[in-house]
């Protein structure tokens, strides 16, 4: 009965192989693919379309507290405030205005408040062309010196835009200069960058950027 023995040997071998395979597959012995590292969701603050600053016009629109803009609660009418300078011709800011950083123009040359503010009526601006401008018209004040920028801003080339590019379908929304620039220190401030791309195998070295 050589044949019978052979058959049972083969069948037995197959049974052992299949059992081993079944055990291996059910027990996930070959292993699952290693799941990629979980990337944390980005902070929603980075998705905000809000401007860096809030303009006077925004405050009026949202009916915020405007008491900071009522100069004559502290100052006296018909008595223009006197500017004080130290020995380096640096403006000495009075205590109530300590929060202002004087950084408009290079080399501290633009150190005279009355280049923009009207000393005889602090509620107004005085551009050099002699117009009287209110706080809400600050963009026209900036444009009285920065003419090319104002031209660009009016055509939508400078500054933020949102809303509709197609004006027949909806309005375009524009912002004032002071929504992004601090008028006393207009350079756009630095900010922390949003997280960069997460790589599957850790951060790869990028070429030295020097």
């Amino acid at each position: 009965m050589q044949n019978g023995r052979k058959t049972s040997l083969v069948l037995g071998g197959l049974a052992v192989t299949f059992t081993a395979l079944a055990a291996a597959f059910l027990g996930d012995l070959p292993g699952r693919p290693v799941p990629p590292p979980v990337v944390p969701l980005v902070d929603r603050a980075f998705l905000s379309t809000a401007t860096v600053r809030i303009s006077y016009a925004d405050l009026v629109k949202t009916k915020e507290d405007l008491s900071d803009f009522e100069c004559y609660t502290c100052h006296q009418k018909d008595k223009p405030p006197v500017l004080k300078y130290d020995e380096n011709q640096k403006l000495v800011l009075p205590k109530a205005h300590r929060d202002i950083v004087m950084g408009h123009g290079t080399h501290g040359r633009n150190n005279n408040c009355y280049n923009c503010h009207n000393e005889s009526n602090l509620l107004l601006f005085q551009p050099h062309d002699g117009r009287d401008l209110k706080f809400a018209d600050s963009t026209q004040l900036c444009g009285s010196c920065h003419t090319p920028i104002l031209r660009d801003w009016e055509s939508g080339v400078h500054g933020r835009t949102s809303g509709f590019w197609n004006r027949t379908l909806g309005p375009i929304e524009r912002k004032d200069c002071v929504n992004c620039h601090d008028p006393h220190s207009p350079k756009f401030p630095g900010r922390p960058p949003a997280p960069g791309p997460h790589q599957l195998h850790g951060q790869s070295p990028t070429p030295a950027a020097t």
Binding site: R191, P192, P193, G196, P197, Q199, Q203, T206, P207, A209
Partner: peptide
């Protein structure tokens, strides 16, 4: 080739 897209300084 000298561009870096993984920069992560405190402030940009």
């Amino acid at each position: 080739d000298r561009g870096d897209h993984t920069y992560a300084p405190e402030s940009v």
